[in-house]
Design a protein around this nucleic acid. Structure first.
Length: 631
RNA sequence: GGUCCCGUAGCUCAGCUGGAUAGAGCAACUGCCUUCUAAGCAGUAGGUCUUUGGUUCGAAUCCAAACGGGAUCACCA
């Protein structure tokens, strides 16, 4: 309808304004609740072209549209706003259209193949709240893009390589207790989730490392340099003597550097570094342990993903792609877009792009983060020749990194570089402040999921709508509701913004929450069941305001999906579905549907209810939230 | 210090391609279960949209500056 109005005004612009106008000056919006009408045309921009008083012009346009478009039944003018009202027949037809479109809201157009990267955790620590925002976001954006007509591949880059995993490995070798069967701790002999077990040893490493660092530092203070490498001693002495006679501020700086030096020379870290070198050389023993411990972690992650109903189409591993990255760097060097310094490290200069120089390969030839990211991107486009774009779901702390990455890909001459997007989301804060793993304020993903589950269980039992359900069905419901609450809580905020996670609020089931929407859906299903609703019955013409409001809302769904896809913003879907549920509850509470005696009227209300349910279900699906038949 | 992001009700957030009297939820207060699931509905109260200047018919929205908060600037990932 919006299109129709725009077209007809544009076509008749000469007659109406004595001038041709750009279609973008024809602005239509939903009429505000306080005013009468269904759609509002802003006349101000047009008045400029017509050189007319906005109110007069609005009158003329109103008369013109009333005569030209049959569905428009009347109009009113308030200041420069032309409010148009559509016929009841029009709204009736819209409802029928929605009702007969099974995948209402989805684009029918076939669009390109897009890869969405998300989750992508390190393999040394369990998943936490921040990962949850990432996972829900990425998964939801992928679903929204599908709904918008794209073919989508969900992927991860698994950071399985590097010093961090060596730390866990080493700590496990050194500190794991041995049981009566002579085995060190494993997920199967401790019953611990694999990622948690490996995480435990990562923490243990850190603890020991700190102890050793302090030991060395104190020894140095007492001029004890046993077991210290001569080059380190001389560096220490250089730093120490530079301290003398300086201001306090500078002294503190130097003090920090000395600590750093001690840290870098702690025996346990030296050992970890040696292990990494062995790993790169494919030392069989190290390699076996590496793949075993990573295997534990993957299994642990898999369990969590399963709870969240997330699956990936393809995983990439840094242990594979860093090699491809190195080749790409080589290629760039030959091409002349990168350059090599005397110490043979390789760099790119992005000063013309307003950025800095950036290291791409260390002087010893080993890879950095950027190296493997280049390799991963390249590999992906190689694997999928049809691939037309990539979305990286990564926190906004890496904004700079991705800016650099995309410039580099462009410099390497990859045509597809311009189709790579960094979906940059804000950090999740707690009421107590930032999450810091070192201070133990990180909210563990599995714990959180379990807490919410228990909370929902208690509340559901209190309410007791669950007669006739067995334990398995009940548990499945608690799970649906609790993960739905979590997903909705994390998705309803604009992804780009930093958000506050309030644990007390997240277990709320009232107000603007996932369970509120799920509840609305469950009510509708119960209603339809009791009414023994059947398809293709005669329904009455739309009449009441409240009915039109709901059809209006339903009608918006496709454009919301499109907008959400364009802006990678599941929060738009959240808002929309919430408002739809609210509008429906209003109808539900004020209009008794089942006891309506007029059969066609009753059928109309039921048809509306059914379609609200349908849109809630599809909308929630896009948020990776399921809806229960009963709750 | 350079670059980037943010500042809307007591709290958490919408609204930001300029448009009508700035909206929700939570918290507070008042009503509504003999009627389809009260995880609900209806209502009251709550705002110098951080500040100052500019652009214009019109600014929470665009521009500039200040103040406040955050991120980032590693041969870390």
């Amino acid at each position: 309808m919006i299109l129709k109005i725009k077209q007809i005004i544009a076509q008749n612009a000469n007659q109406l304004f004595g001038n041709n106008i750009d279609e973008k000056n024809i602005v239509l919006q939903q009429t505000k609740k306080e005013f009468q009408g269904d759609l509002t045309l802003l006349v101000f921009p047009l008045a400029k072209f017509a050189k007319k008083n906005p109110i007069e012009l609005a009158q003329e346009l109103g008369t013109f549209l009333l005569n030209s478009i049959i569905e428009i039944t009347h109009f009113n003018v308030v200041q420069g706003f032309l409010n148009l009202s559509f016929s009841k027949q029009y709204w009736y037809n819209e409802l029928i259209k929605i009702d007969s479109t099974p995948s209402f809201g989805f684009s029918t157009e076939k669009k390109s193949l897009i890869m969405v990267e998300f989750a992508s955790p390190n393999t040394n620590k369990p998943l936490h709240l921040g990962h949850l925002r990432n996972i829900f976001l990425g998964n939801s954006v992928a679903e929204i893009l599908k709904a918008n007509g794209h073919e989508v591949l969900k992927t991860q880059i698994i950071n399985d390589r590097g010093i961090h995993i060596c730390k866990s490995m080493l700590a496990w070798i050194k500190f794991s207790p041995i049981n009566s069967n002579g085995e060190k701790e494993t997920p199967s002999n401790t019953g611990m989730k694999g990622d948690k077990l490996v995480g435990k040893y990562y923490v243990e490493f850190d603890k020991q490392w700190n102890i050793q660092t302090n030991d060395i530092y104190n020894k140095w203070l007492n001029n004890n340099f046993d077991e210290t490498h001569p080059s380190v001693i001389s560096e220490y002495e250089k730093l120490f003597s530079s301290k003398i006679g300086k201001e306090e501020k500078i002294q503190i700086e130097i003090e920090k550097k000395i600590k750093e030096l001690a840290k870098n020379n702690a025996p346990i870290l030296v050992e970890a570094k040696e292990m990494l070198i062995k790993w790169e050389a494919r030392d069989p023993e190290v390699y076996l342990l590496w793949s075993t411990m990573n295997g534990w972690v993957y299994k642990g992650f898999e369990e969590t993903y399963k709870k969240l109903q997330v699956q990936f189409d393809k995983n990439y591993y840094e242990s594979d792609t860093y090699l491809i990255g190195k080749e790409a760097i080589d290629y760039g060097l030959k091409k002349g877009v990168f350059y090599q310094k005397e110490d043979s490290s390789i760099w790119v200069n992005l000063e013309n792009e307003g950025l800095d120089e950036k290291l791409l390969l260390r002087s010893d030839g080993t890879a950095v983060y950027m190296t493997q990211d280049i390799g991963t991107a390249y590999q992906r486009f190689l694997d999928f020749p049809k691939l037309a774009g990539m979305v990286y779901t990564v926190g906004n702390e890496q904004d700079y990194h991705f800016k650099v990455l995309f410039h580099i890909l462009k410099k390497l001459g990859f045509e597809w570089a311009k189709d790579c997007v960094h979906l940059s989301y804000g950090m999740v804060d707690l009421p107590s402040g930032k999450m810091k793993s070192r201070e133990g304020t990180v909210v563990d993903a599995d714990d959180l999921i379990e807490d919410l589950f228990q909370n929902v269980k208690i509340l559901a039992e209190e309410r007791g709508h669950l007669e006739g359900m067995n334990d398995e069905q009940k548990n499945s419901l608690y799970h649906t509701v609790s993960t739905g609450a979590l997903a909705y809580y994390l998705l309803k905020v604009d992804p780009r913004k930093r958000m506050m996670f309030n644990p007390e609020e997240s277990v709320e089931l009232n107000g603007n929450t996932g369970p509120f929407i799920q509840y609305t859906f469950a009510r509708i299903q119960s209603l339809l069941k009791k009414a023994k609703y059947q398809e293709s019955q005669f329904i009455a013409i739309v009449d009441a305001e409240i009915e039109i409001d709901i059809i209006k809302k339903l009608q918006l769904f496709p454009s919301i999906v499109e907008e959400a896809a364009k802006s990678y913003s599941p929060s738009l879907i959240c808002q929309y579905v919430y408002e739809l549920a609210k509008d429906f509850n209003n109808l539900y509470q004020n209009v008794p549907i089942l006891i309506e005696e007029n059969v066609v009227k009753r059928n109309l209300l039921l048809t509306m209810s059914k379609n609200v349910g349908k849109v809630i279900q599809t909308g929630m699906k896009l948020l990776s939230i399921n809806v229960p038949e009963k709750m």
